[in-house]
């Protein structure tokens, strides 16, 4: 194995690069940012579009990023990253990483054209999407990555609708369809796997993309101490998956022999608690369909 790979807590530096931020107690997104920066180190240039992490990291006169960091326009995070990389190249900088952290809305809805352009150009940037399944920063509005049945302020649950009525966008496959050199899905419930994927992305000479599931205790409605448990359970019940795309091949990193009950996972969260058995069976059917396709077409 490569010596630059960080795969566990022992190999991880003790130095913090995202510290003293004002995120909610038990925030999953801040853990995703913290761990990624610990792998990438001090020589990172960070760009964030408006999302929770830019709201809690930049509070004048307090700045929680120990590395260089900038807030990009919402739609242009990947374009700003491309610009930083071009600037670093012009200055002759070596041994640095250009990394962007965007939420699910900033990646799958508002920022998708800039991301698509950056992947197309093949700029050497790392794009990390921390997916908390709604626009949490502005008060929990539905995004393209909000799953079926989730209650948000713009998809309220009531007599006629079960909350969000559409499934998650297949962001990972959309990115892979560009022919990107490295893309992966991860979860903060499996932090070692996430560290490994960030290390891999750091060594990539072209654009890389990591989609990390990061539960939001405030928006999802569960106690803060359960963040890691919920993230892990999302993978175990099959509603999220750990996979990689490189050399034009999809690989499943984790293939559960059986899924844990979806209902248990859903009922732990306030946003799903209104769901009846009909809705849960819709979610299960969709999961089974997705896994059938993945197991058939992807390596494992």
């Amino acid at each position: 194995m490569d010596k630059n790979m960080v795969t566990n807590a022992r190999e991880l530096t003790n130095t913090e690069f995202f510290y003293g931020h004002k995120a909610c107690a038990g925030c999953g997104g801040s853990l995703a940012v913290r761990l990624a920066l610990k792998v990438l180190g001090q020589n990172s240039f960070v760009s964030l579009p408006p999302n929770c992490m830019s709201a809690v990291g930049f509070l004048f006169p307090q700045i929680s990023f120990v590395t260089n960091a900038i807030i990009a326009p919402f739609a242009a995070n990947a374009a700003v990253l491309s610009g930083i990389e071009a600037g670093a190249k012009a200055l002759g900088l070596k041994d640095h990483h250009v990394v962007g952290f965007a939420g699910d809305g900033g990646t799958a809805d508002i920022g998708i054209q800039a991301l698509s352009g950056a992947i197309d150009r093949g700029d050497r940037i790392i794009y990390i999407c921390y997916d908390n399944e709604a626009y949490m920063n502005t008060g929990i509005q539905q995004s393209g990555l909000t799953p079926y049945g989730a209650r948000t302020t713009t998809s309220p649950a009531g007599k006629n609708l079960p909350g969000s009525i559409k499934m998650k966008k297949n962001m990972f496959e959309i990115v892979a369809a560009h022919g990107i050199s490295y893309a992966a899905t991860a979860s903060i419930g499996y932090p070692e796997d996430y560290l490994k994927k960030v290390s891999k992305a750091a060594q990539c000479e072209s654009t890389s993309y990591i989609h990390v599931m990061a539960p939001c205790c405030t928006g999802w409605g569960f106690p803060g101490e359960r963040t890691i448990e919920i993230a892990k359970e999302a993978v175990d019940c099959g509603l999220w998956f750990l996979a990689e795309y490189e050399n034009e091949k999809f690989t499943l990193n984790r293939k559960p022999s059986s899924f844990s009950p979806v209902k248990e996972y859903l009922m732990k969260q306030g946003r799903f608690r209104h769901l009846g058995d009909d809705d849960i069976s819709i979610i299960e059917r969709h999961r089974d369909h997705k896994w059938e396709k993945m197991l058939k077409n992807w390596d494992s």
């Binding site: 807590a9 991880l12 913090e16 995202f18 510290y19 003293g20 931020h21 995120a23 107690a25 038990g26 925030c27 999953g28 801040s30 853990l31 913290r34 761990l35 903060i188 932090p191 070692e192 963040t227 890691i228």
Partner: peptide
């Protein structure tokens, strides 16, 4: 605990 602390 060191690994999963959201605040480091």
């Amino acid at each position: 605990c060191f690994l999963v602390c959201p605040d480091g």
